[in-house]
Nucleic acid binder design. Structure first.
Lengths: 199, 199
DNA sequence: CTACAATTTAATCATTTGATTAATACATTT
DNA sequence: AAATGTATTAATCAAATGATTAAATTGTAG
């Protein structure tokens, strides 16, 4: 008797599900799309993962970690300055998002479509309210809500990727040029954040 | 013979469709949801608007105009300074988005799910590349791509609303407090944008 | 090799879903 | 009021969709 179900088949399904779910979202995804993308029989999805919903939960959990976990080690580093952290956060996000440009729109849309599904599972809360980075912001600028500066930093890093489909669709900037633009931002956002700290 | 089909019924369907489509997205929306939301018979959707898709196109066109048209008059105003325009843009967006918080995520998601549907229909292209506002940015800072500053300004204005479901879900900030926060930003973004112009 | 368990497949099921239809109700014109 | 066109409804259809099943295939242990 085989102890493990075939890891390769399971992994093929996960890979296909990751691709299709993140490209089309949960509601627009057909289990048959995933089967075709994986090259496997439709019934195997239910054999290895009970249902479309269970399969989605796996992908979603993975993507939530990818989106919110990227900066977790940075924001709680006790050994770096506020300015250094800001630059590191922008760099970490942009580096990751260049390889996963659709990630933010996917995760944020699905959370919006099913808010109750993500009660406390998201450590975004702690990052935005209890992290060492936030404390450093509060020390520097006790006069304003630190969430303002967090939103500015995250927006400068993430928002371009959220807009990418529009930028491409409207021929504002395409493929290669987009990547150059966001690469520039890896360095610029640190500078800009410093300016915002003074403003 | 009645010349006009009953405007009231047509409008009830549009209103219900607007509510359901923007809340759940095209793929997750059932025509029966719209019928129920409107309190009308399901067949009336097809009687007045041929299909789910046609009905969606109407709502989508409306929402695209709402999202991209909000700042169109501002960015091409020849009589205001760069600084004034930045503040006006933030104010106009935030004022509109407080009443339509789900708008950006809805429009951007649908464009992402169906990019070819919006070839040139979107004047976002002109706003981001040919507007008088962009020219003013270029004059002031010929050393950097003006798209950087456009993305920063739009991101500071719009990104908080894209994150709202996460902020609420993670109890970072809720309902009333969120509205206060973004209201503060109406004034702050102008100041911040000036700081970015100097940075 | 044989027997047994795990995997894979094609066919099928029960619901859901967008759409249509035929009958009925309502309004307007003459 | 009769006739005609418009609006609304309940019932129904066909296709799509998530899931299951029973049979076939493959792999493994004894």
């Amino acid at each position: 008797m085989k102890k493990d179900k075939d890891a390769s088949t399971e992994e093929k399904i996960i890979e296909a599900a990751r691709k299709v779910f993140t490209r089309k979202g949960y509601a627009a995804t057909r289990t048959r799309d995933i089967a075709q993308e994986s090259g496997l029989n439709l019934a195997l999805l239910n054999y290895y993962f009970r249902s479309k919903e269970k399969l989605f939960e796996i992908i979603m959990a993975e993507k939530v970690v990818q989106l919110f976990g990227t900066i977790a080690p940075i924001v709680n580093n006790m050994d770096t300055s506020l300015e250094k952290k800001a630059g590191d956060i922008a760099d970490a996000y942009i580096t990751m998002l260049v390889n996963n440009p659709g990630l933010p729109l996917f995760v944020l849309s699905e959370i919006r479509n099913n808010p109750q599904m993500f009660g406390d599972k998201i450590h975004a809360g702690k990052i935005l309210t209890e992290s060492y980075f936030v404390k450093q912001i509060q020390e520097r600028r006790p006069d304003i809500n630190p969430l303002h500066l967090m939103l500015n930093l995250l927006g400068m890093s993430i928002f371009p990727f959220i807009c990418q489909p529009v930028l491409e669709g409207a021929n504002v900037i395409t493929g290669r040029a987009f990547e150059s633009l966001v690469a520039e931002r890896k360095n610029l956002i640190g500078i800009w954040f410093n300016a915002l700290l003074e403003a």
